[in-house]
């Protein structure tokens, strides 16, 4: 029983991280129709930034979020204005090719800058505490609560603010949004900024828990696909649900299937993706349709 509860807790903590990790991917796809194959590489960039700040200024990775989030917002904003904006009206294949190229460029740029050696952020509190016989990893618990905080803030932004309403309007009907005075280019740029910042923030948050290397991003992109299929496009509760399902499944399989270990995660996420697409193609929350109903 303890083993099961331990696995469940680990799965929940991992799922919470997956929930925030996927948001940038899911919202960018839902609002602009861009499938960002460089998603994991922005996560990797965030992890490297946290490592750099830790190494240079001895800055705690969670505190460095205060700098990383605005910095990566600017990067995302500029990326949208310079590159992604030119892709929105193009066939989806063009988007895939360009973001795939961006992924390769980012990974290799980091390899040139920092070599392929794995880096880590050894924070002093990277241990665990015992609660009713269950071991609670401190860093993963912090990541989990930061993830919930980020998701709640994004939810509030989308539901309560004028910007959020404009983002949702642009996602549902681009032309109707234009004609009521919404500056679509600006909305898209801010959305991209938020998505890239969230993704890099997720990368910075997990930097103390895993090795950081230039090619660490792609498994996260693949997992983001699975979670988006599970939870729906641009839906925050769906992202959390999808993240939980994948996180718990991964940990349960690693715990109860002998000889598998945690490295089976990517393969498992793809198996889950195929199973979901066969059994329930609309996703778990019937959300696997674009947020927009009419792109014309």
């Amino acid at each position: 029983m303890t083993q099961f509860l331990q696995a469940l807790l680990s799965g929940l903590l991992l799922g919470g991280f997956y929930g925030v990790m996927v948001l940038g991917f899911s919202v960018l796809w839902g609002v602009m129709g861009i499938i960002n194959l460089a998603h994991g590489d922005f996560l990797m960039t965030g992890a490297y930034l946290a490592w750099l700040m830790f190494r240079t200024f001895n800055l705690d990775p969670f505190i460095s979020l205060v700098l990383i989030l605005p910095l990566m917002f600017v990067v995302g904003y500029a990326l949208q204005k310079i590159l992604l904006n030119r892709l929105i009206e193009r066939p989806r294949l063009a988007t895939l090719l360009v973001t795939f190229g961006l992924s390769i460029s980012l990974a290799n740029l980091h390899k040139i800058l920092y070599t392929a050696d794995p880096r880590n952020v050894p924070v002093a509190y990277n241990g665990s505490i015992e609660l009713w016989g269950i071991s609670v990893p401190i860093v993963k618990a912090i990541v989990f609560f930061i993830a919930l905080g980020m998701m709640s803030l994004l939810h509030l932004l989308l539901q309560r603010t004028r910007l959020g309403k404009a983002i949702r309007a642009a996602a549902q009907n681009k032309n109707a949004a234009k004609i009521v005075g919404i500056d679509i280019d600006r909305v898209y740029a801010i959305t991209a900024g938020i998505c890239i910042a969230l993704t890099a923030g997720a990368g910075a948050a997990i930097s103390p828990t895993q090795a950081i290397f230039p090619f660490m991003g792609q498994p996260f992109t693949l997992k983001a696909f699975t979670i988006t299929v599970l939870g729906g496009l641009g839906r925050i509760p769906g992202a959390l649900l999808g993240g939980m399902v994948l996180g718990i499944t991964e940990v349960m399989v690693a715990t109860y299937v002998p000889g598998i270990g945690t490295n089976f995660g990517v393969a498992l996420s793809l198996i889950l993706l195929v199973v979901i697409l066969i059994v329930r193609p609309q996703g778990l929350s019937s959300g696997l349709r674009p947020m927009n109903e009419d792109r014309s």
Partner: peptide, 18 residues
Amino acid sequence: RIYRQMTVLENMLISRQW
């Protein structure tokens, strides 16, 4: 062309943004 997944009031408020 309305925003079907938003409430009627939200649809109206959107049209006053920006």
